[in-house]
Design a protein around this nucleic acid. Sequence first.
DNA 1: CTGAAAGCGCTAACAC
DNA 2: GTGTTAGCGCTTTCAG
Lengths: 342, 342
Amino acid sequence: MSKQGAAGTVTLADVAAHAGVSLATASRAFNGSARTVNAEMTERVLASARELGYSANAQAQAVARGSTRTVAVVLGDIADPYFSSIAAGVIDEAAQNGLVVTMWATGSSPDRLLSTLAAMRSQRPQALIIAQSGQLQSEHEAPVTAELTALERAGTAICTIGSGSGSFLRVLVDNAGSTSALARALVERGYSRFLVLAGDQGLRTPSERAGGFVAGLRSLDLEPLAVQAGGFSRSGAFATMSAALESGLRPDCVFAVTDVMALGAAAAIRAAGLEPGRDIGVAGFDDIDAVRDVSPAITTVAIPLAELGARALRATLGSREHLETEAIAGVVMLRGSTPVRR
Amino acid sequence: MSKQGAAGTVTLADVAAHAGVSLATASRAFNGSARTVNAEMTERVLASARELGYSANAQAQAVARGSTRTVAVVLGDIADPYFSSIAAGVIDEAAQNGLVVTMWATGSSPDRLLSTLAAMRSQRPQALIIAQSGQLQSEHEAPVTAELTALERAGTAICTIGSGSGSFLRVLVDNAGSTSALARALVERGYSRFLVLAGDQGLRTPSERAGGFVAGLRSLDLEPLAVQAGGFSRSGAFATMSAALESGLRPDCVFAVTDVMALGAAAAIRAAGLEPGRDIGVAGFDDIDAVRDVSPAITTVAIPLAELGARALRATLGSREHLETEAIAGVVMLRGSTPVRR
DNA sequence: CTGAAAGCGCTAACAC
DNA sequence: GTGTTAGCGCTTTCAG
């Protein structure tokens, strides 16, 4: 009754009136604050709420409390299995903590990151998880860092995944160590003439992976046949691989810095009339589902993607004390795409 | 200056003070309301805002305005390529409309949908896009519909993708028609002994797809060898397919109601020592990226997944007049997994 | 065109 | 324990 909103939305005041208690008591009945409420009264309030179909207005709560229960996730492209797996981890962990997740995609353009962050700041998220490929360097770094600092000052805890700059929290993957191990495992299997599809070398993750792989080879006194930058995508890798083959390059194994790229490379090999695995070994990184479905299955480094997301959120939430700080090591998964050679 | 929040957050009041104008004027300078503001003053306000690093508090705006700029997306599992592609479409369209997207995953349990919707209601989203597999039937239907109705009464425009009940908006896929066409195309290629992996027949989408496929066969006076329910996932399809083969069933072609299932079926065929395509044809539905990467590539029905999401959002936003209402037809993509037979 | 002031729905001192 | 009341940051009447 009373001045119930025309829109038909039930407010806490309505509930309080219905239960015959004060606004404050009704509020306390829900989020049992410092002061406790008589059990019987609590029950009466809850009953009224149920009867009226009350649902707290999160926005109003946020304004009154001065903080939201929101965590923002920024990623390149949600349709990419790498990002979507991370997102799944964040969403799951968020749900367990009663947080709502807002999702922001920047596509591949790093300048959209800036406008995205600016727009996001209005939301006053409690936490921000950035799962880009590390384009936090370059010319864009300064304004981005400024925006991030502003966010942090406004109370947002920031964590970057697989990259990061400044003093923000990060969840790191041991890219270099993992690819080193992969390189050694492949040499062990008899490969020696490697082509590296290095992706965008302006980004941190791909360069660490390519660098680690080459370092692994060097630790065995080997040099890659070639390291090709560019094409940080399936089609890009397809193009790069095709061009390499056409130019007469004949590696016995290709390492692509992401599985998505490895799939593109495998397709290029096949398009050139060769057979991945039999004629040219193929290895990737990430262990996305798709590499297990192809035949031969693709050798890769497994990363617990969802766990990465979950851990990032935990890092922003938890006390900084028991911060899981060590870089996550990948697990080399040798598969049919790199059979023992000779 | 003045009573600037201890947290260091700049408020509109701060900006107004800095610019030497009233709160109201500052507000109007931003969202040029009905009343217009002197150009010079507007500029002064904007300059102050820039200087102070002001960012509007979206929560406070929502409370004052009585509506948010938020759209909620509910889906089964964001790591599933089917859902993540749809989500990508929604996110993209939302960004173009200055809306923020909140993401909610229900996993496979339909009862989590209910609690998810309840939690979501607090957010007062302007629009809600539901991209579940249509578990809006069954015993859970009544409470879910009640919750949806409450949401709608609170001002949320609701649109379901690929399913739906009640009077809510929907974006439909012509599942039955598409699978009928697929069935005929396969028969045309010389197949006749079909096994259908029908997934969860309690759900609308899978049952429409399986039904349409069988109808397509019947229109040519054929009956499927078998229609197996259950296993609405990669591993489920793997199990179902393996069991079928072990039981001595020898189809010349398998149709799985989703690509993810088709991949599982292909793996099972291979695990049984047979070769997909050569020994048993394989067809799926959705045209996710992964089916193009496997070899042989899998025949399927292509659906513009991202467009589905974008269209759903547009439906909730736009005037109901030019509602794109017709079901989206899939495109049969014949590939190597179903070569011409005989 | 600009400013003062009344909310929006809720929380959190502060009293009783 | 419970109620009163002053905000939270912003929008929007209502006067000028």
